[in-house]
Amino acid sequence: MDKRPHILQTTELCVTATSRALVRDVSLTIAEHQVFGLIGPSGAGKSTLLRALNRLTDLVPGLKVTGDVQLHGQSIFKSGMDANALRARVGMLFQQPVVFPASIVDNVLFGARRLQSLSKSAQTELAESALQEAALWSEVKDRLKTPAAKLSVGQQQRLCLARTLATKPEVILMDEPTSALDPRSTEAIEALIKRLKSRHTIVLVTHNLRQARNVADHLAFIGVRDGVGQLLCSGSVDSVLGRTDVAEVDEYVCCQ
């Protein structure tokens, strides 16, 4: 049993779109400084669940979230909770790199500049620190003012990670962060995930069982029953992937 302090907890979390349930009654506990993997078939609601953890679901018209998500025991839905401040603490890395039409350094500092007033020296120091942590500094340190769009796709994904890291998040949500990358870039991101968990908690959506086995400390399987995404089991990587008594898990693993 994991004895590390809990950082995130969901209780009977449900997400609906108009009258249709996407995810129902998901209760999870996520410990600090681990890679918590979410696996399951396409359409089960894993990405929707991930977005509910930092209220990105608020930005999608028609979505309604019930139940609760707690960060360090405090509800993220409580009155007075600043959603932007929450998303700085619980950052997000998407499936496709999202770079802005600006320089590399302006991309890194985009979120941090909006959250706080930073001197020029503080900006310089923060950009270098974030790029170092994202293992990109050595590749871009001599061209920080060049357009981010000139980077390779793998570099762009690490740039997006650096932008997230610049806000000093406690948790990083990753939605299939390597699905658009070549094998070499995928290896680089996976190596980063393993290093980052010493300072951050990672919640990772992946369809890649090799990746789940390689980087995850804990897994939750989100499957579809009665047309709705539901938590069917969770536990250690081996225990979840070995659940032959859960038909949906057994079929999913056999088909990979």
Rank of each mutant, 00 (worst) to 15 (best):
R55Y: 07
D175Y: 03
V153D: 01
V249C: 06
Q116H: 09
L59D: 11
G154S: 11
E170F: 00
K197N: 06
I193E: 00
V108L: 08
A83M: 12
R89P: 00
I104H: 00
R143D: 04
L50A: 09
I76L: 12
E12M: 09
G242I: 06
S117C: 11
T244R: 14
K141Q: 15
E128L: 00
E125T: 15
E32G: 08
K141A: 14
T57C: 13
V240L: 08
I193K: 02
E190P: 01
E12C: 11
P183Y: 05
L56V: 08
G43T: 11
S117Q: 15
F94D: 01
H6P: 02
P183W: 06
T16M: 13
P97K: 04
F100Y: 08
Q157W: 02
T164C: 10
R199V: 03
V108M: 06
R158Y: 03
E251A: 15
A88K: 06
G37S: 11
R51H: 13
R184C: 05
K64D: 12
A88M: 05
A102L: 12
N107Q: 09
R114P: 00
S152I: 09
K78R: 15
E133P: 04
A127P: 03
T124C: 09
R195Y: 06
T186M: 09
L161S: 02
A180C: 02
L231K: 10
V90T: 08
K78N: 13
A135W: 13
S103Y: 02
L71C: 08
C254W: 07
M1Q: 10
L13T: 13
L136C: 08
E125S: 15
D142E: 14
K46Q: 07
F110P: 00
E12T: 13
K141D: 04
E248V: 10
R143L: 08
